[in-house]
Amino acid sequence: MSLKNYNEITTIKLFVTFAALGLRGFGGVMPYVHASLVEKKKWLTNEEFSELIVIGQILPGANVTNFAAMFGYRKCGWQGSLAAVLGILIPPFLVLLVIYNFFKIYAELAVIKGALKGMLAVASALVLVTAAKLVLAQTRRVVTILLSILCVTLSGYFKLPLFYIILIIFPIALLMGWRASK
């Protein structure tokens, strides 16, 4: 087999690669994606990687699966897209089912109840830190923070459906962002 054939990306390789990424990705898959696809396998350049990330973030839905879908499509068409997405979803989900069943069996034990409480606290802290990172990435923090407070009030206190929240906040943010970019 020639070297070229060996480096060729197939749907099976896509599935295996993304399955490995999914299974290694404790606490966020993206750093592993960069290390594997850009640094190790050189399937993507740094610029291509950042471009796909930005589009994945703008589009609704899970960033990583959007990334996998676009990358798979770029390399192998529809089958590639499907292979990458299934690869990143199915193996981690099977692991999750094992963990879930463990918790379910011992759900009534005080120790497990306590452990779940601790996990909830950590999960809450992780989400909080993600939000803080987003705030720090902003150039116009005051406007962002004010609009975020409006968003959290509409969501948490008024229990408004997300669709209406977006309808209210996105146009304001877009207008201000557009004016600032001029």
Binding site: Q57, L128, S148, V152, I169, A173, G177
Partner: peptide, 27 residues
């Protein structure tokens, strides 16, 4: 890209804060 991304940020931040409080509300 950047204008849209920055405009989506306040919503994402607000929602994440909402998630964070929802998770610990009971305990």
């Amino acid at each position: 890209y950047n204008v849209i991304k920055l405009s989506l940020s306040p919503i994402a931040i607000g929602l994440l804060l909402s998630t964070s409080t929802l998770l610990i509300k009971k305990d």
